[in-house]
Simulated assay, not measured.
Amino acid sequence: MDLLQLNLNRIIQWCERFKLNLNVDKCCTVTYTRTLTPLNTSYYIDDHLLEKKHSMKDLGVWFDAKLTFLPHLDNVCSSSLKSLGFVMRISKYFSDISLIKKLYYAYVLSKVEYACLIWCPIYASHAIALDKIHRRFLKFLSFKVDGIYPEIGINQLQLLHRHDMVSLSYRRDQSYAKFVYKLLHNQIDCEFLLSKIPIYVPRISSRSDVSFRPPAARTDVLRRAPVNIMCKAADRIFDDIFA
């Protein structure tokens, strides 16, 4: 803990040296742990005690102390529903379905899928909350075409097939698979992340068709780790990701 405070002091000295001012009011501390009794340590910047918080927003993603990403999921659902309402209101008199879809992709799905590799919903309840947004838009499209809303309990796959769309889970898999593809084909330059990819080299007589062999996940944290998620998605999407 003393080492962390020492590093903070060095950062402050570096900022003072190059005439950079830190906004201390925007600085805080978050302890990432799942223990019931986390270490309670105070940190200072210029004798200013840093506020302790249970969550913080970094590059548009809310990180909570237990890394469950529940605050971010709640924020995504709330913000996406508001944007969906906006899209439905302004497209009230539109007859071009393709135009309405473009508005949905731009204003709603852009929020639902932003940085999803980081906060991937691994629990069914979280995925269902996101799917409800997708389902509501699909039923709105059916209303625009037929003049009436679909019956309650209509099959989701039927709605997706009718409007030539795919599920959010499949779109997430595509996004994860594309990321690892770009990483392996040098379209994303990150040596550290590339070194963490568990490439599977099978025996000559092996019948295994997977490209990766991530370690068995015994905890929820490891199961939702970005490397595990994108490797499994790549095996599902690509027949041969190295081709």
Rank of each mutant, 00 (worst) to 15 (best):
R162D: 15
K66I: 06
I204V: 03
I122Y: 03
Y93Q: 11
C15N: 07
L141R: 11
K53I: 00
D47G: 05
L6P: 00
V145M: 02
L4C: 13
L36N: 06
L8W: 03
H163A: 01
S175M: 06
V166Q: 11
F143Y: 14
R162G: 14
I241E: 08
I188R: 03
S205R: 15
F242K: 02
I11T: 12
V112K: 00
P215V: 03
Y181Q: 10
C116Q: 10
A234N: 01
G85L: 09
R236T: 02
D131N: 05
I12S: 12
C190I: 00
D2H: 09
L20Q: 10
V180Y: 04
S79C: 14
A177G: 05
I229K: 03
Y107E: 06
Y93N: 14
I204W: 14
Y123H: 13
A177E: 03
K144V: 05
L193A: 10
R207W: 12
D96P: 10
L73Q: 12
K178A: 05
C120F: 15
V221I: 15
D209C: 07
S169H: 13
S208A: 10
R136A: 00
Y32C: 13
F179D: 08
I122L: 04
P226Y: 01
Y43T: 03
H72G: 13
R224Q: 09
R135W: 05
I45Y: 05
Y200I: 13
I154W: 07
K92T: 13
S95Y: 00
L183P: 01
F86P: 02
Y32A: 14
S110A: 10
F192G: 07
G60I: 07
V61E: 02
Q174G: 09
D64Y: 09
Y107G: 08
K196S: 11
P214N: 09
S80N: 10
